[in-house]
Design a binder for these strands. Structure first.
Length: 239
DNA sequence: GAGCATGATTACCG
DNA sequence: CGGTAATCATGCTC
């Protein structure tokens, strides 16, 4: 009866309302392991799908139950008719009913199993954040890149800085951390590839920060990596 | 559709 | 616990 427990836990079987919230709680618990996503939209989406599965499950279950009782009635009638010609013991009737119920419950088991599978697929699809990865918008990456390249000598934002960036970019702090982690490693791995970008943002922040007069005339010379921290492309802020 | 870009996850380290 | 490195899975471009 593992299937029953599983369906109950997922809120597919069991009471209407408590079930749904139980499922949501299960999802929340599973997602709490480190998923940085806010997830309210995903949850409502998940719930909708789960409700759909629930509906199918219950209507099918009802159908089976109805069919079972109909069939049982049918057999009982047959037995009743037969009882005119030969004696039929209550034991025999019981046995027949038992056989019918076993047959139908095995069909129900299949229904439960396929419902379980559907739920599992749904879960894996909705809980695996990688599946619904979205690129950050232009403005967000702009902000992040600006910070990264203006702190190229030490591109490790503090917790507060991360929060600030997260707020600016409308993403979570974990996403900021992920972004910087990825950025650092990828920048280090292939500095050449980021040269252009680095120069761009270096100039941008330079112009932005210090509104000094003309200084953008030297922004296209190739790389001169230094040995400390992270090699800067061609523009070194100071220090 | 192949191939690269990119965000997220995982294993491991200090 | 926060970092790196490798990897996964998807998005995007050609």
């Amino acid at each position: 009866m593992r299937l029953d427990n599983m369906l109950l836990a997922e809120g597919v079987s069991g009471p209407e309302k408590g079930g749904a919230s139980a499922a949501a709680a299960a999802v929340a618990a599973a997602a709490a392991g480190g998923s940085p996503n806010d997830g309210s939209i995903e949850h409502s989406d998940y719930r909708a799908k789960l409700t759909q599965i629930r509906g199918i499950y219950h209507s099918e279950l009802e159908k089976y139950e109805q069919a079972c009782s109909e069939f049982t009635n049918h057999v009982m009638n047959l037995l009743r008719e037969q009882s005119r010609t030969r004696p039929i013991s209550p034991k025999e009737i019981e046995r027949m009913v038992g056989i019918i119920h076993r047959k139908f419950s095995s069909i129900q088991m299949q229904l439960k199993q396929s419902t379980c599978e559907a739920v599992m697929i749904l879960r894996s699809r909705f809980l695996d954040a990688r599946r619904k990865r979205r690129n950050f918008n232009k403005q967000a990456t702009e902000v992040l890149n600006e910070y990264f390249y203006s702190h190229l000598s030490n591109p490790y934002p503090s917790e507060e800085a991360k929060e600030e960036l997260a707020k600016k970019c409308a993403i979570t702090v974990s996403q900021v951390s992920n972004w910087f982690g990825n950025k650092r490693i990828r920048y280090k791995k292939n500095i050449g590839k980021f040269q252009e970008e680095a120069n761009l943002y270096a100039v941008k922040t330079a112009v932005d920060a210090a509104s000094v007069s003309s200084q953008a005339s030297q922004a296209n010379s190739p790389a001169t990596p230094n040995s400390g921290g992270y090699p800067a492309p061609c523009y070194t802020p100071d220090g």
